[in-house]
């Protein structure tokens, strides 16, 4: 099978990685992109990722309340999702990140026994 021309994959890879860095790691905008659009896209990606994590770990949203979004966004900027990890890995990593910062109780027991009938 005749593949793409010499260097095409490399050129595309460089361009796509630069865009991903700008969107996921807050890196500098690659030339030719409208910065405000990159910000909007980056925000949309984080919002989607945040919603997935909130669905998987609603108790974190419950504990953090209004701080959930801000905290998640600063976690997300430091930790782009790596290829090969699942959404559940992401949610668990966020919970560990929070516990490490003492934003939520380390042990789940506090809310675990909150309700038993």
């Amino acid at each position: 099978m005749s593949g793409p021309p010499e260097g095409a994959r490399e050129r595309l890879a460089a361009a796509q990685v630069a865009l991903l860095r700008a969107l996921l790691e807050n890196a500098e905008a690659p030339p030719g992109f409208a910065p405000e659009r990159l910000r909007a896209q980056a925000e949309a990606l984080r919002r989607k990722r945040r919603r997935v994590v909130a669905n998987l770990r609603p108790e974190l949203l419950d504990q953090l309340g209004d701080r959930f979004a801000t905290l998640f966004d600063s976690y997300a900027r430091q930790h782009p999702r790596r290829t090969g990890t699942t959404a559940r890995d992401d949610a668990d990593a966020f919970a560990r990140w929070l516990a490490h910062r003492d934003d939520v109780p380390r042990s789940p027991s506090r809310w675990w026994h909150r309700f038993r009938s």
């Binding site: 990685v17 991903l20 969107l23 999702r81």
Partner: peptide
């Protein structure tokens, strides 16, 4: 995805002959 990063969403691609 690219460079080991996962966007978690469908991102557009450049509309060039190369791509």
């Amino acid at each position: 995805r690219g460079g080991g990063m996962e966007a978690g969403h469908l991102l557009p691609i450049p509309r060039t002959r190369d791509t």
